[in-house]
Nucleic acid binder design. Structure first.
Ligand code: FES
Ligand code: FES
Lengths: 134, 134
DNA sequence: TAAACTGATACCATATTAGTATCAGTTTGT
DNA sequence: ACAAACTGATACTAATATGGTATCAGTTTA
């Protein structure tokens, strides 16, 4: 069971890198090198973050990306949602069969509860709080 | 993110079925039919549960499986461990790079906490508690 | 003695995740 | 002017995990 996949992982690293960088704009080449992340793969990820308005993009020579939102407003939960979809731990394992009434299924209750805890923890983690130069 | 995969799902259903059954021994054929689970697939799952001492197996005609442990002692966490490995939500995303000190990484702290909550919830859910004929 | 079962294990199909490649367009230093 | 250095968009491939089949061997019992 994996909570964080490569896309989210690399996205976090890149965002933190940009937050720590003095230059406003950072290119994929630079980040790919410094963070040791495959260039094309990272590029794809940052393009998505741009579409989602998390990053600003600058085309042309000396171009690159910069944060569109301050790092303390970019939450781990946001990134996970972007790259891995909404947190949904169960899609009713026992359909009609065993659970006679979805409203009283204790499995569902527990898992709903877990989902809440996970969401709120991931929501409380901003990219700024992960930067060690904070 | 999936908490419970098909193996665990089918294992739960089969165990609950056996717990509810009056006959001591239930065959894969019967369960496969009643629970609408592919026969060979279910068989493989039950063979694993047998190896793990959760079930007793009876060979030969009229053979099948029965619970080796009472249903209230078979926990969801046990099944997840058997079929999906131990709960391990993170394998240090940022290796040496960003986390200068693993002991102070707040990401790790939060995820460790989540892992604890998840484990304890899954531990508190026995197969008996999911049977509606309890 | 064959039908109905499990043991063991190899195999296949599909989906998801991770990573690569490429063409088109933009900007800028020289 | 123009090539180098960049992003936009999108298609493709590779690796891995998951879900599911198939089969041969051995056991038990009607
Ligand atoms: S598992 Fe979905 S309602 Fe019980
Ligand atoms: S992510 Fe593993 S220690 Fe910070």
């Amino acid at each position: 069971m994996k909570l964080i996949n490569k896309d989210t992982d690399y996205a976090m690293q890149a965002i933190i890198y940009m937050a720590e960088s003095k230059e406003g704009v950072v290119s994929v080449s630079e980040m790919s090198e410094k963070l040791e992340i495959p260039k094309h793969f990272l590029r794809k990820i940052l393009q998505i973050l741009h579409k989602k308005k998390v990053l600003k993009a600058y085309e042309g020579r000396n171009g690159g990306f910069s944060l569109a939102i301050p790092a303390d407003k970019i939450l781990l939960l946001d990134l996970i949602k972007i790259f891995q979809g909404p947190i949904n731990l169960i899609e009713c394992i026992f359909k009609k069969k065993i659970c006679p009434d979805i409203r009283h299924c204790i499995l569902k209750k527990k898992i709903d509860y877990l989902q809440g805890v996970i969401s709120s923890e991931l929501k409380s983690l901003s990219m700024a709080s992960l930067s060690y130069r904070r």
